[in-house]
Simulated scan of single mutants.
Amino acid sequence: MTEYGYNLLGRLSEIFAPAGCEDAVISAIEAEIGAYCDELRRDRAGNLIALIKAEKPCGKLLFATNADEVGFMITDTDDDGRLYITPLGPIETDTLSGRQVYVGNSEKTSLAVACAKPIHEQSGDERSKPTAWDKLYIQTGVKKGGEQSIKAGDFGTFRGNFGEIGHNIKGKALDTRADCAILCEMIKRIREENIPHENDLYFAFTVRGKLNRSGAVNAARGIAADMAVVLEYAPCADISEIPGQFVCARLGGGAVLPLADMKTIFAGDDTAALIGEAETRGIKYQIKGVVTGAGDAAYYQRDGGSGTVALAMPCRYPNTASCVINKEDYDSVLALSLALVK
């Protein structure tokens, strides 16, 4: 992993940008890649769309990923400084309770703590069940009767903790921001290394991926690429006692190539070509062992009419404050993505 990639990923990971409040991360990416693009725009959904033109384009090749992260929305406040919340995306209350969080919006955030009934005060029945969302609240430290700067309609997400742990990296939002960093690094290298390409290259950083994937729908329709390469994450279950045949992906096993998800069957010839590129170039890869979830790929197939393949980053503890990815896996996804450009 290059120093540039690591530092960029650290900056992107720390940005406050839960689903529906992505302006800060979109602006950061916009500033990062603007000098390398022939065109750079935001569409009506708020997605960031970049274009590097070919001299004599044969078609449109799209690389797409989500830019947001899981979080929550403030729904109400009270005089004791409590904020009541509802989830944005696949976030569990047990990953929030007792955690430091940031609350606010794209312009201003405040540090707070997610709170629930203390475990030593819970009944046996309460301990055996996940905390209900209506029993979880955010404490900002505002005194009773004090003015609360956070309002209903504001957002929240985990406080970041980006850093290295051996050959791995941990931090919030790595399940999306690692792929954002890869696309940024691709754009930079294509320009600086003058990498040849026969297609117009589109790059989509989409919004609300953790919520309803409406960003992907708009990008698919607006670009209508001939081929879409969707970058996503593959959850790892490789440190528990789950039998091997049920392990989706392994950390350090290389780029993950899904054959299908719950909404998409990836084109056989295109996926076979992807495997061929990896083997020819000596890029480490693994086949996604279990058909799980449903990413953005279905929307590029259905709404954009694009041939579609997926590349996934192995990730432990996605949608938490401490996602974990592997540096070599990052390099594998980047290398295979660049191979598709050529």
Rank of each mutant, 00 (worst) to 15 (best):
L9M: 13
S13E: 04
F16Q: 10
A19P: 12
C21I: 05
E22C: 10
D23Y: 12
I29K: 13
I29Y: 07
C37P: 01
C37A: 06
D38H: 09
L40G: 01
A45P: 10
I49H: 00
A50F: 06
A50L: 03
K56Q: 10
A64S: 13
V70F: 03
D79P: 00
R82H: 14
Y84S: 00
P87R: 00
P87K: 02
T95K: 13
T95H: 10
S97R: 10
G98K: 04
G98D: 03
Y102L: 11
V103M: 08
V103C: 04
S106Y: 10
S106K: 12
L111E: 11
A112S: 09
A114I: 06
A116E: 04
E121Y: 06
D125Y: 09
W133Q: 04
K135Y: 02
L136I: 05
I138Y: 07
I138T: 06
Q139T: 08
T140H: 02
K144S: 05
K144Y: 07
S149Q: 00
I150K: 00
D154K: 02
F155T: 05
F155C: 02
R159A: 15
N161G: 07
N161H: 10
F162N: 05
I165Y: 08
N168D: 13
K170R: 15
D179L: 14
L183M: 15
L183V: 04
I187Q: 01
R189F: 03
E192F: 10
I195Q: 08
H197D: 05
N199E: 12
V207M: 11
G209N: 13
L211E: 13
R213N: 13
A216R: 00
V217D: 15
A219T: 09
I223F: 08
A224V: 04
D226A: 02
D226G: 09
V229K: 02
L231A: 05
E232W: 05
A237S: 09
S240Q: 08
Q245V: 03
F246T: 02
V247L: 12
V247N: 05
G252D: 07
G252C: 06
G252N: 06
G254K: 06
I265H: 09
D270R: 15
D270C: 11
D270Q: 14
T271H: 04
T271L: 14
A273N: 13
L274I: 11
I283W: 15
Y285I: 05
V291Q: 14
V291C: 10
D296G: 12
Y299K: 04
Y299F: 15
R302L: 13
T308Q: 02
M313H: 04
C315R: 06
C315V: 15
Y317F: 15
P318V: 02
N319L: 00
V324W: 08
V324H: 11
K327M: 09
D329C: 07
Y330K: 03
S332R: 02
L334C: 05
A339E: 14
L340M: 15
